[in-house]
Nucleic acid binder design. Structure first.
Lengths: 236, 236
DNA sequence: TGGAAATCTGCGGTCAGTGCAATGTTATAC
DNA sequence: GTATAACATTGCACTGACCGCAGATTTCCA
């Protein structure tokens, strides 16, 4: 009853194994830290052999991060296929916004436990090794946007820096919005924060005055976040 | 005759070994690709044991990327110690600008061969593994700026997203400026490009009109860059 | 000149990641 | 329903990154 091709039993098993590995990897790492979990243990928890693990993910990092093999192609196409009337800026904003929303949906979706999901996300942002892996992933994301924007504009990204700047701003806005959305407890969707970050970045970071509204939007979404810490504080 | 402490023989040897390892790593990787160079070969080329390699660098990547252990502390302090009259925006811009310039100076400095230096930089930007490592390094750079800005402003970066946005924009501007400066052959310093990227990012990405001047600045610096490619072109 | 301290190195070990070949499982043709 | 092709799983053996340790060597300083 699917749209394109009914997924066969093989496909279903494959997807299940993939999810099991990913979920096991995240869980174990959240419990014990990235360095204290072996691939063998992850595979064990998902009830497959260690060798099979590497048939699904190219590295231990990839399983924890949750690398979707054709996400990037999808994003590329999404930028290209936005209405021709839209500026590149609008097209990228729309695509990134949708991506943030879909990402947030996973918090509820994968299991019925958003709290567990947030715990694991926090791990990814905390562990040094995983932070590095995530940064690499984000950079790849950005590269996809660069080439898509250049293609859309018909310019050569090797010469025209505009696609690079736009992609950097867009990906940064998305990334920061999701982080602060999660810090605020993950209420609703990060889309308004994404928009606010876009406004802040693209509308003029320097003009502190005109920035206030956008930042108020970013801050205001998490009313329960304690302000006890909102004082000067050195962080080592 | 140094300012703080006369470097002892030990220090000099240590620095020399460090540089030798780094230069050997970059050279071998530029020749044969990251995956086709072993730590043992790098150590061999620098005339130390493989075990000693890991006394200098925590990983193979670090040697190629050229991780300076206390660069981040320096940058943190630089942001803090900018004149109190400056806005955070101006302070960060100044620090990032200086950093870009200093980075560019290495092109001539390390050896008398800037061409060789550019060849190796290109490798870092081309090889997937090194791109990932570089992205991770850049993310760490950005984190340092975030905490420094927050400290300077006396806000908590966990709550106030402004430091994160500013740092992201600054680091992105710096990174893109250096890349396009290098693509243009590395004439002069990347500082004007950094400024232009700052203007583009901070002054309003969306307003295509007002952006034209900044981008013209970015493009115009490499007059010899062939415009034969400056046509529509899909990049797979 | 004689230690004290830092550095270099070899050794043994763990674990990530890969190619290969055997085995098991699912899909398909008849 | 069975044969067979296609694909997935697994074990095995191997390379190479990386670390802790302990002994040898070099550099420093009194």
């Amino acid at each position: 009853m699917e749209l394109v091709a009914p997924p066969t039993r093989r496909d279903r098993k494959k997807l299940a194994t993939r999810r099991a590995l990913q979920w096991a990897a995240l869980g174990l790492v959240a419990d014990r830290g990235y360095a204290n979990v072996t691939v063998e243990e992850i595979a064990e928890a998902a009830d497959v052999s260690a060798r099979t693990f590497f048939n699904y993910f190219p590295s231990k990092e990839a399983a924890v991060i949750g690398h979707d093999p054709d996400l990037f192609d999808t994003l590329h196409d999404a930028v290209i296929e936005r209405p021709a009337g839209e500026s590149a800026f609008e097209a990228v904003r729309a695509v990134v916004r949708v991506r943030s929303e879909r990402f947030a949906q996973e918090a509820d979706g994968v299991t019925g436990d958003p709290g567990e999901w947030f715990r694991r996300m926090k791990t990814v942002q905390t562990d040094p090794h995983l932070r590095a892996a995530h940064a690499a992933h984000t950079a790849a994301y950005e590269r996809v946007i660069v080439t898509a924007v250049a293609e859309r504009l018909g310019t050569d990204p090797e010469i025209d820096p505009y696609p690079a700047l736009l992609a950097a701003a867009a990906v940064a806005a998305s990334r920061i919005a999701v982080v602060y959305w999660a810090k605020g407890g993950g209420v609703g969707t990060p889309a308004p924060l994404t928009d606010a970050a876009f406004v802040a970045l693209a509308g003029g970071l320097a003009a502190d005055g005109q920035l206030a509204a956008a930042l108020a939007g970013l801050r205001g979404t998490d009313p329960q976040a304690g302000r006890s810490q909102n004082r000067k504080e050195a962080c080592s």
